[in-house]
Design a binder for these strands. Structure first.
Lengths: 280, 280
DNA sequence: TAAAGCAACAGAGA
DNA sequence: CTCTCTGTTGCTTT
């Protein structure tokens, strides 16, 4: 369970913006060409000597806007680190990409499984597969209001968990935070969207906001590292990864179940499939 | 079974090109606004007084190129007629669109169920959903060579019938002609592409060409009408729609089966699932 | 019955 | 645990 989701990404991108804004890229070292979206030579040429205008995020993507309209889109996939070093001493033994800044600081990007570092030239931002169709990002996106969320749900089919995990609906939620989001809203992951009452949809919206906000305030997951290689302080899940431990509300033992192709942790008492609404 | 496929469309578009090339549109009457892709007023404005440069086809789409880069994309969907009248007497009682030419002739377009009449302005041809992703068109498209066909099949999964019916793979084949195409090639509709031998792929290519060419030579299906409201002369299917009649090769009774969501007519002896190759 | 787009979903691959 | 690509199914439309 080493997957950065919205809180970790927000944290990282804000730290990156703080540290890197207005600095200039000097050198690029591509250690694994599969992670990038063009030949390394083109990639290096496009990025070299570019100035960082702003670092932001959309869903699980960290987006660095450089001058001349160039963008660097970073997705840590199944987990990884972005670490800023004061100099080139004591770099990690393994990383996929190294970016040296003109001020001697060094950024290393490493993932332990799939991840993408895509460079996008001026004008190609809208056609990038990864971000073109992303849904709104909770917490940071002013578009993500309660009314907007309820509207998004209108007429949609399928299970609530599948909906939340699809980045084209809402961007930034993964299989870690979705566990507590559903528990807080007292909704079973397999509930069909069509069966959710208005009250449940409202509860779900609040739960998304509160769960993610809470994690951001704690600097993200304790299992993840930030830009300074420091872990976050969030580790007290309500039900996530707490199989056979008591539900914090009713003390019923938490179950690990399979919903679709992903695992879910639920309190069978608080998140009934039949209790809170028919699930025909 | 009233669906125009490639032979009928080629026939119609060639007749339309013959009759309408260089003529000028005078008036448009939109009887059913749902068939078109913009408000009727815009549609009429875009087409009025435009000159027909050429009528051609891609797959099941009839494409009329007008001057100033405007295009009229017609898809007869589940069946319909395009009829040219010498004047405005004796028009059909029902039609979705009427186009009056400056030379007094009248074109009526009618479908008995879904169909599309889309007008596309200069520059929007490539982004039109219906034609942007179409595969090559057999018979008329010089790109559709045997080598190209074999290459298209490389690495594809799923059943041969589903593949042939998907317009994004090959454009123009529907559930009518596909029956005899598969019979001629002695391939069961549910055979997986992965299990086809090179010889079978070659046979399939020949069968597509010969089946469609043969139908074009006969002016298309006897159940369909051409631009002059005359029926085609092709009605002697080999196995299509001949349930319980003897196979023309081996006399085994032809079966109607369900493959996926469509019906198939096969000779169970000539088109075995197990005989011509494993279908794991 | 058929045509085609879309949404949901499952499986494979990177 | 991630996301993309395919392919399949089921629903909808006039």
């Amino acid at each position: 369970m080493k997957m950065p989701e919205l809180p970790e990404i927000i944290n990282l991108s804000e730290q990156m913006n703080q540290e890197l804004q207005h600095t200039i890229i000097k050198d690029i070292y591509v250690m694994q060409e599969k992670c990038i979206n063009m030949p390394a030579a083109d990639f290096i040429k496009l990025l070299s000597n570019k100035r960082v205008e702003q670092v932001s995020s959309r869903g699980k993507w960290i987006i660095t806007r450089l001058d001349h309209g160039v963008g660097l889109f970073l997705n840590l996939g199944m987990g990884g680190n972005v670490i800023l070093h004061e100099n080139d001493h004591d770099l990690p033994s393994k990383y996929q990409l190294r970016i040296d800044m003109h001020d001697k600081r060094v950024l290393t990007i490493s993932f332990w499984w799939f991840g993408y570092i895509h460079c996008v030239d001026k004008g190609d931002w809208g056609s990038h597969k990864g971000i073109a169709k992303l849904g709104p990002t909770p917490i940071r996106d002013p578009e993500f209001t309660q009314v907007h969320f309820i509207n998004l749900l209108q007429g949609r089919k399928g299970s609530v968990k599948n909906y939340l995990l699809n980045q084209n609906n809402i961007a930034g939620i993964g299989n870690v935070y979705v566990q507590d989001i559903l528990f807080r809203a007292k909704i079973h992951p397999d509930r069909k969207l069509q069966t959710l009452s208005e009250a449940e949809k409202f509860l779900l919206y609040r739960s998304i906001i509160e769960t993610l906000e809470g994690a951001v305030k704690l600097g993200g997951l304790a299992y993840e590292k930030d830009l300074y290689n420091q872990p976050g302080r969030f580790k007290d899940f309500l039900v996530g990864y707490r199989e056979d431990l008591p539900c914090p509300i009713c003390k019923t033992l938490i179950q690990k179940i399979k919903s679709g192709s992903t695992a879910s942790y639920i309190c069978p008492a608080c998140q009934g499939l039949d209790t809170n609404g028919a699930n025909v």
